[in-house]
């Protein structure tokens, strides 16, 4: 085997407007993590706690885009990853956070932080460190080019495994019946 094929692929992952359920599903490949780690190494990821993404072969993103920071992180991934993958319903469609898209953002914040029953002395958070929410939640492909999509809420461990092994082996990733799910 040549050096090129022996070299471990560098993989970055992140969760934007997601719930980390897709990352849990990734970990759910269980003992298959060991053969996987013979082929890849992690760059920026919640699993390594590396804060910024360096040059990578594969970037895997969970969650959609709901605030300004999400946009910056997504662009950092796109700039550094040869292949960018949208993992899970939120990254692919906007998902649960996008259910606010037909509501007025100001009214949402008001209800949650000011007028909802049970809120006492409420205030809408205004710390300058907090990223500003976007008017609408977007799936990733509306902001940058996405190379592959893995739908599912979350995609099953088997779907993620099939996708990753296909990709790592140089095949076009293909999820057949039972692995492709939108729910």
């Amino acid at each position: 085997m040549t050096d090129v094929t022996r070299r471990k692929l560098r993989v970055a992952t992140t969760s934007l407007a997601g719930c980390f359920g897709c990352h849990m599903s990734l970990l759910d490949i269980d003992e298959r993590l060991f053969p996987l780690l013979e082929r890849i190494e992690f760059d920026r990821s919640p699993l390594t706690d590396i804060k910024h993404c360096g040059p990578c072969d594969i970037g895997i993103i969970e969650g959609g885009i709901c605030n300004a920071e999400n946009v910056h992180v997504l662009r950092e991934f796109r700039a550094n990853c040869k292949i960018l993958v949208a993992m899970g319903a939120c990254a692919v469609t906007g998902g649960l956070p996008a259910q606010r898209n037909h509501l007025d953002l100001g009214l949402c914040l008001q209800e949650v932080y000011l007028t909802d029953p049970g809120v006492a002395h409420g205030m809408i958070p205004n710390d300058p460190e907090l990223p500003l929410p976007l008017d609408k939640v977007h799936p990733l492909h509306e902001v940058v080019k996405i190379d592959y999509f893995i739908p599912g809420c979350p995609p099953s461990a088997d779907a993620i495994w099939k996708f990753l092994t296909d990709l790592i082996e140089g095949r076009t990733p293909k999820l057949g019946h039972g692995l492709i799910h939108y729910d």
Binding site: A89, L96, I150, P151, L175, Y182, D183
Partner: peptide, 27 residues
């Protein structure tokens, strides 16, 4: 607004099933 994860038709939905069968990975 086809948000499959919260739709009670999911799994019995013809549109979704066509997406699966045709290999539609994204809208």
């Amino acid at each position: 607004n086809h948000f499959c994860p919260s739709c009670e038709k999911s799994g019995n939905c013809v549109l979704q099933a066509l997406g699966y069968d045709l290999g539609v990975m994204t809208a």
